[in-house]
Design a protein around this nucleic acid. Structure first.
Lengths: 180, 180, 180, 180
DNA sequence: TATGAATGAGCTTTCATTCAT
DNA sequence: GATGAATGAAAGCTCATTCAT
């Protein structure tokens, strides 16, 4: 792919990420094109439909998230890694990213259907950390990985509902995951 | 107001509730009018904008919810009432009502700004039950009523994310509220 | 249906007939709306898709044509009626109506699939006149009604190709139908 | 012109012929470029507009047709050559070539205006055969060459309208040309 | 007052043509 | 010369809102 095309593609993706993060799927493609400084046709060349663009944004964010999550987990004791990851995902990643939140909540795009590899990588990360935490006795043994994903969606919603106390409230929610 | 006008208003509200509950704000006004058996103009006579209609639906649901919540609370011991209410709201009220869920999550309409009385009545209900539970030693003492509301939004999201295990997972979330 | 709506519908149909007759399907709906003095939404209210509008125009023309054809045939001797009809259809009806010509040629819309009743009425008219002409010994006996329809499409094309001599050339084509 | 440029031009022309023959003018230039294995810019270097490309395709086909027609005519008796040619053009050349048919019907491009030499060569071929047939007493004397061309357009339309019986029906049309 | 027809701005998408690489 | 990315003007269609009937 040509250098300028790559640059434009990246720029569109970047702008789209910001736009979707702020306004969700409601933002028009023309607006994204305008903000990226390209014609609408250029957006459609790289992403044939609006849904494709949204998918690409979400996929890119998920991939970054999984990579960061793996790195993060490596530096934490098994007992804490799951909790550290969930806390970080909500507070650092989800804070200003409606697109990521919606995707994790299953809205706008079906991550599992549209990008099964990405979904799998994410679930596999969660599964590893969950198993380790259960082994270490810090996480409840009656939870599976999709439970944790659902709780994560809940934590996002809590953050949305009261951002100024998100840090404290996320701990309240995560507390529910802990073995007593 | 004439009797037929009143009847129309109630019918529109009822139909709009069902429509928003199922499809969210995406449902067109024409569709609501059609289902209600009235003209679009009639909807607009009673509710000048689509947002007004949505607000009215949410307000009505909140009012019903507060009333039902008061009744429910009266029949429960102080130690349990908060938990019973939250559980019920999520599983009975929110299960099939996207409109209510969105409103509690602060989406689509700002309940506090648009209908402060309703918001106050709801918060006051929560506050009473929270205080009682804290007194009884079942709820954490470091939480206030807006914290509980945020946790409630989280519980809705959890239910959305994994409806088939909602009952179990809501308990996990509510567990976070309990005094240890 | 309300009087103004009926008026608008008729006006749109009229304008669309003229537009399609002149420019074929290429004319934009916005243009038809503009010429009719209505908003684009009004066109779409009456005809949900462009194809629906085109169909309605063609159907209306076919219906008029069949009615006029029946009337015409009644006043002619059986030996001539088929030839008179075909001549009239080409010279009077098809002359400036690309929409009708395309429909008879199977372009733009499949008359048989989209409006079988109309197609049947037309074919039945042709069939009656063909049978009478065969009986009278003026038409070849080895032709059926779809053959005549195909020849009619040919006559339209001849007219398109050399309008200034259409009258004479149509006779040349129709001569092919005659029993020797 | 460089050898590779020549090769590209020929390849584009070939592919465009096939594309137009199948789908008419609706096929996008990008698609033609893709099928030809060149960039869109290359198509535009050789043919400044889509219409120019279409013209070139039609011209090339006409030239081939005239050459083949001359050859064909040489091997037939004067009394039959016109009829043999017309039959062949419709059944062999037009059957799968919408581009050629449209051009002969005056659609998409005005052959006479855009490539007078080609038009003249074609008409001159027709004129020769027509004169010979009139001389031989097989063709009507009241027809001129543009009449024959118009009839040819009609024969194409008949073929389009009922391809399964084209062979038989073309004879019916050509019969109209015969001296009685 | 109720009706539902009309409006028109706005959205997604396509494609002939231009132009940087 | 070739490439294919970028452009941007339409096009078809939807829907919140207004207004004639």
């Amino acid at each position: 792919m040509r250098a300028d095309a790559l640059r434009n593609r990246a720029r569109v993706l970047e702008v789209a990420y910001e736009a979707f993060a702020t306004d969700g799927l409601a933002v028009p493609i023309d607006e994204i094109a305008r903000r990226a400084g390209v014609g609408a046709g250029t957006v459609y060349r790289h992403f044939p439909t609006k849904t494709d663009l949204y998918r690409a944004v979400v996929e890119s964010r998920f991939d970054q998230l999984v990579a960061a999550g793996r790195a993060l987990a490596d530096g934490e004791p098994a007992a804490d890694a799951l909790f550290v990851l969930l806390r970080t995902v909500v507070l650092q990643w989800g804070a200003a990213d409606r697109g990521l939140k919606d995707a994790l909540a299953g809205e706008g795009v079906d991550v599992n259907a549209a990008m099964p590899d990405t979904e799998q990588a994410f679930l596999s990360l969660l599964a590893d950390l969950l198993a380790a935490a259960q082994q270490a006795g810090t996480a409840r043994k009656d939870l599976d990985v999709t439970d944790v994903k659902a709780i994560l969606a809940g934590a996002f919603a809590v953050q949305d509902a009261k951002p100024q106390d998100a840090e404290r409230l996320i701990e309240v929610v995560l507390d529910g995951l802990r073995e007593r």
